[in-house]
Amino acid sequence: MVVLKTEKREVFGKKLKEARSKGKLPGIVYGQGIREPIPVFIVKDEFKKIFKQARETDFIDLMFDEGKKSVLIKDIKTDSASDEPIHIDFFAPRLDKPIEAKIPLVFVGESPAVKLGGVLVKVMHEILVKGLPKEIPHQIEVDLSLLKNIEDRITVSDIKFPTGIKSLAKEKEVIILATLPKKEEEVVPEAAPLLEDIEVVKKGKKEEEGEEVEEASGAKKPEEKKKEEKKK
């Protein structure tokens, strides 16, 4: 069990700025057996060390002058700029009443399907369970060796949960599956134009340009000259 010492807190609001500058982290404790919420200070660096290891389902023993209290981290407020914790809510649950919690999934072992050229697609990374607070596991393991062939999948029904822990996810929900990698679409390059086609186009342009020049200069076409001679 992780232990964290507390200090009685009688400072609130804007006055907390000075306390935070001295490495103190304000918090509040409430829940089962606590008539009124208890304002506390804890050492910020000590909390950060614990938080790297503890999850929302891990109990922490808060030490008071009059004894200790087993609590869970209920909420953490952080600074928007530095992302450092600035306030902690600790909750003391009833130990005889089931609670719901999201537990991380940890994938262990090797999948034979990968050796066949398959790739693994993770659909779920955590799972919602229900159980007594002290029985909630730190994590749930998923055995990848169950994925033997391409298109095999592991569903919630394939997971063995600890005694007293019930999954709140549907049994048919897929956790991870083995599939073939997607093939990249081949880009077919456009055929380059033939040299003959390029020359024909160029000639056509020159002829058109020549006609435009004649019309612009007022030069008459041979057909127009013959018509004028007949009239005479």
Rank of each mutant, 00 (worst) to 15 (best):
residue 2 V to I: 15
residue 2 V to W: 13
residue 5 K to G: 13
residue 12 F to G: 07
residue 13 G to Y: 04
residue 13 G to D: 09
residue 14 K to V: 13
residue 15 K to I: 11
residue 19 A to K: 15
residue 19 A to Y: 15
residue 21 S to E: 13
residue 21 S to L: 09
residue 22 K to G: 08
residue 23 G to P: 12
residue 27 G to A: 05
residue 30 Y to K: 00
residue 32 Q to I: 05
residue 39 P to W: 02
residue 40 V to E: 03
residue 45 D to Q: 04
residue 46 E to T: 06
residue 55 R to G: 15
residue 57 T to Y: 01
residue 58 D to K: 06
residue 60 I to K: 05
residue 61 D to H: 02
residue 62 L to P: 06
residue 62 L to S: 08
residue 62 L to M: 08
residue 65 D to Y: 06
residue 72 L to Y: 14
residue 72 L to G: 09
residue 73 I to L: 01
residue 74 K to Q: 12
residue 74 K to A: 05
residue 76 I to A: 04
residue 81 A to Y: 13
residue 82 S to D: 04
residue 86 I to T: 12
residue 87 H to G: 00
residue 89 D to P: 06
residue 94 R to Y: 09
residue 98 P to I: 11
residue 103 I to Q: 07
residue 105 L to Y: 01
residue 106 V to N: 02
residue 111 S to H: 01
residue 112 P to W: 02
residue 116 L to N: 00
residue 118 G to V: 00
residue 121 V to E: 15
residue 122 K to L: 03
residue 124 M to I: 01
residue 124 M to K: 12
residue 124 M to A: 05
residue 127 I to H: 00
residue 130 K to R: 14
residue 133 P to H: 02
residue 134 K to L: 15
residue 135 E to Q: 09
residue 138 H to G: 04
residue 142 V to G: 08
residue 142 V to N: 11
residue 142 V to R: 07
residue 146 L to A: 11
residue 147 L to I: 06
residue 149 N to V: 04
residue 153 R to I: 02
residue 153 R to P: 03
residue 158 D to F: 10
residue 159 I to C: 05
residue 160 K to S: 12
residue 161 F to W: 04
residue 164 G to H: 11
residue 164 G to P: 04
residue 166 K to S: 07
residue 169 A to N: 02
residue 170 K to H: 07
residue 171 E to H: 05
residue 172 K to R: 07
residue 185 E to W: 09
residue 186 E to D: 12
residue 188 V to P: 09
residue 189 P to K: 01
residue 190 E to L: 15
residue 191 A to C: 01
residue 194 L to A: 13
residue 196 E to I: 14
residue 197 D to R: 05
residue 197 D to I: 03
residue 198 I to A: 06
residue 200 V to N: 10
residue 205 K to Q: 11
residue 208 E to Y: 11
residue 210 G to E: 15
residue 214 E to T: 11
residue 216 A to C: 04
residue 219 A to R: 03
residue 221 K to Y: 13
residue 222 P to D: 03
residue 223 E to R: 07
residue 224 E to F: 01
residue 227 K to C: 00
residue 228 E to T: 04
residue 230 K to L: 10
residue 231 K to R: 13
residue 232 K to F: 03
